[in-house]
Computed example of a mutant assay.
Amino acid sequence: MAKDHAPQFHQDHSDFPQIDRQATLQADRLVELARLQPLTDGGLRTSELLSEALANAPHHHDARILLERLHQMFVPRWHFPMLADKVRNRAFAEAIAAKVGPGDIVLDIGCGAGLTAMLAARAGARHVYTCEQQPLIARAAVRVIEENGLGDRITVIPKPSHELVVGVDLPAPADVVISEIVDTVLLGEGALATLVHAMRRLARPDARAIPEQGRLMAQPVDSDKLLALWRPGQAEGFDLGAFHHFASVAQITPNDLSAVGLRPLGPATDLFHFDFIRPDMRPGRTTRDLACSSAGTLHAVFVFFEMDLGPGISLTNDLSSDGHWGRTAFLLDRPICAAPGDLLRLTAQHDTSQLSLSVQGFASCTGDPDLPFLWMSHAASSCPPRPDCRAVLTA
């Protein structure tokens, strides 16, 4: 690990028995070697040295600290709640059991701990080829798969999928492509680009895919607690309003979702549809009117996905769902009162990897779809006066 950034600790070995002192001194040497290792191999050699140090001296403080830092650097923390997500796991298990059969060659993109690859093997696949670009994760997946007795039916390839070649990494094009590479709005992990390459270059023309398709939806929501969390108006008597422009998109953890209590003010509206069997790289732009069916304070536009894994098998991160996925809400610069029948006009755009959203105003009031919605810079926690809609739009 980079020497300049590694914590420098000096252990006192004077009170250790002779054999422990020798082991600890050897661990010290291994830790120093680990500090000097470049991380261009994804941390593999550094991990080996630190693990060897701990084998010599299990209580070695420096080795434990550095190994934990290495794991946090290269193994994203979302892996663990994802693996514990029973709804997600059961949905993938059912879809894979329904779509993978004897004789199938399966390509599993994004191996992680190897769960979906093992599900495909259990479903009867002839062989599963699963790729993982992070070397530490790929090595751990091999161990998981071998310990579950599936090492002869699953090959872990330590490469990103776009580097795979049929005839080199896979013996033939895949019959089934499995992936779970979406984020809270489907696009952020480069899912579309990855699947365009996989379905065109690594799969048969009639290949099946899991998931099959996905949709992005938008919904107007009321939550003063969300605003208080992301745009606190003041602290210890000081006005913090000039800092609020940094928080235009709220990334909401599952725990935050329970705490802030987002209340829908109207039904969800489709934004975009994505075909994962025949994916493409065309950017998208759409203008939609979100209907308000309840009165309240409109604080944000909540965006979520619905994903079809197979016939009758779906996953979502909507307001009523549980599971490990976070949620995304686009905060309005100024909360406003909404009444039943109001239509909030917005424009959503994506470039196949990122999503943006801008609000234009209440379409039912302005009569001009191109009139911009001019927000105030300071958020309020209650509805501002609203004698008529145009007064709000020109405030």
Score class of each variant (00 low, 15 high):
residue 44 L to P: 02
residue 44 L to N: 01
residue 44 L to V: 05
residue 44 L to I: 08
residue 44 L to C: 00
residue 45 R to M: 13
residue 45 R to W: 12
residue 46 T to N: 03
residue 46 T to V: 05
residue 47 S to T: 09
residue 48 E to W: 09
residue 48 E to R: 07
residue 48 E to H: 09
residue 49 L to V: 03
residue 49 L to G: 03
residue 49 L to Y: 00
residue 50 L to S: 00
residue 50 L to T: 05
residue 50 L to A: 09
residue 50 L to P: 04
residue 51 S to H: 13
residue 51 S to W: 14
residue 51 S to R: 11
residue 51 S to L: 10
residue 52 E to Q: 12
residue 52 E to Y: 07
residue 52 E to M: 10
residue 52 E to R: 02
residue 52 E to C: 07
residue 52 E to N: 07
residue 53 A to P: 00
residue 54 L to A: 01
residue 54 L to P: 07
residue 54 L to I: 08
residue 54 L to Y: 10
residue 55 A to L: 10
residue 56 N to M: 14
residue 57 A to I: 03
residue 57 A to F: 00
residue 57 A to P: 05
residue 58 P to H: 02
residue 58 P to S: 05
residue 59 H to T: 15
residue 59 H to C: 09
residue 59 H to N: 15
residue 59 H to D: 15
residue 59 H to Q: 14
residue 60 H to V: 12
residue 60 H to A: 01
residue 60 H to T: 04
residue 60 H to D: 08
residue 60 H to F: 12
residue 61 H to I: 11
residue 61 H to C: 08
residue 61 H to K: 06
residue 62 D to V: 03
residue 62 D to C: 05
residue 62 D to H: 11
residue 63 A to F: 00
residue 63 A to T: 02
residue 63 A to D: 01
residue 63 A to V: 06
residue 64 R to K: 15
residue 65 I to F: 14
residue 65 I to M: 14
residue 66 L to R: 05
residue 66 L to D: 08
residue 66 L to A: 06
residue 66 L to I: 12
residue 66 L to N: 07
residue 66 L to C: 04
residue 67 L to E: 13
residue 67 L to W: 06
residue 67 L to G: 06
residue 67 L to H: 14
residue 67 L to S: 09
residue 67 L to Y: 07
residue 67 L to C: 01
residue 68 E to I: 04
residue 68 E to S: 07
residue 68 E to Q: 09
residue 69 R to A: 00
residue 69 R to Q: 07
residue 69 R to K: 01
residue 69 R to Y: 02
residue 69 R to M: 03
residue 70 L to F: 11
residue 70 L to G: 02
residue 71 H to K: 12
residue 71 H to A: 05
residue 71 H to R: 09
residue 72 Q to P: 09
residue 72 Q to T: 07
residue 72 Q to V: 10
residue 72 Q to K: 13
residue 72 Q to S: 14
residue 73 M to S: 14
residue 73 M to G: 05
residue 73 M to L: 12
residue 73 M to C: 15
residue 75 V to W: 09
residue 76 P to A: 04
residue 76 P to Q: 03
residue 76 P to I: 00
residue 77 R to L: 12
residue 77 R to P: 04
residue 77 R to W: 13
residue 77 R to I: 08
residue 78 W to Q: 07
residue 78 W to D: 12
residue 78 W to N: 12
residue 78 W to P: 02
residue 79 H to E: 10
residue 79 H to I: 13
residue 79 H to C: 12
residue 79 H to K: 06
residue 79 H to P: 10
residue 79 H to D: 05
residue 80 F to Y: 15
residue 80 F to M: 04
residue 80 F to N: 07
residue 81 P to Y: 15
residue 81 P to H: 11
residue 81 P to E: 14
residue 81 P to K: 03
residue 82 M to C: 15
residue 82 M to V: 15
residue 82 M to D: 10
residue 82 M to H: 08
residue 83 L to Q: 11
residue 83 L to S: 14
residue 84 A to C: 10
residue 84 A to T: 02
residue 84 A to R: 06
residue 84 A to L: 11
residue 85 D to T: 01
residue 85 D to A: 06
residue 86 K to S: 11
residue 86 K to P: 01
residue 86 K to W: 14
residue 87 V to W: 05
residue 87 V to Q: 01
residue 87 V to R: 04
residue 87 V to S: 14
residue 88 R to A: 09
residue 88 R to Q: 04
residue 88 R to E: 14
residue 89 N to H: 11
residue 90 R to G: 06
residue 90 R to T: 05
residue 90 R to D: 12
residue 91 A to E: 02
residue 92 F to L: 02
